[in-house]
Amino acid sequence: MLEFLSQPWPWYTSGIVIALVMLILLFFGKSFGFSSNLRTICSACGAGKTVKFFDFDWRSQTWNLLFLVGAIVGGFIASEFLSNGEAVQISQATIQDLSALGISAPDGMQPEEIFSMENAFSLKGFLILLLGGFAVGFGARYAGGCTSGHAISGISNLQLPSLIAVIGFFIGGLFTTWVLMPLIF
């Protein structure tokens, strides 16, 4: 059984469980949206004293912080007990495209060229992670949600704003992939 679970899971298992997570949160009177946690963290760190946007009762969002803690634990369980250490099985075309940019084929979940400690603390690797993360945080709050809040919860509720946000996600993602990455790498 454990051996079976240690293989990569097919995409539909993930889609089904994500929808199930959304249903569980709705049943418990909440809604599925992960990036709100970033605002909550700012508020919990005292940002409400200087910026009004963070001046709210962040303790009311404790449930979502617990979900975040669970997500970290879930990643730990997956890596420690449910992983056979196999490389991500991406398509040959992607491997070729990336190798042209100097990024070697997968050896684990993440590319060495960005995520290894040595590269993450080189100027280039550090800026990629820091500025990339910065754009994710800034953009998610500006757009009022991330992949979970807009692409899943919002589109499930047939919200046009969420569709516009997801179109934006793709415009930005395609620009980075096709225009910025050849310049960066």
Partner: peptide, 19 residues
């Protein structure tokens, strides 16, 4: 939604991870 979404997407492709 469009501008916020685009900024989010720029970072999503770079870090390979949403929140």
């Amino acid at each position: 939604y469009l501008i916020g979404g685009i900024i989010f997407g720029l970072g999503w492709a770079l870090t390979g991870a949403c929140p």
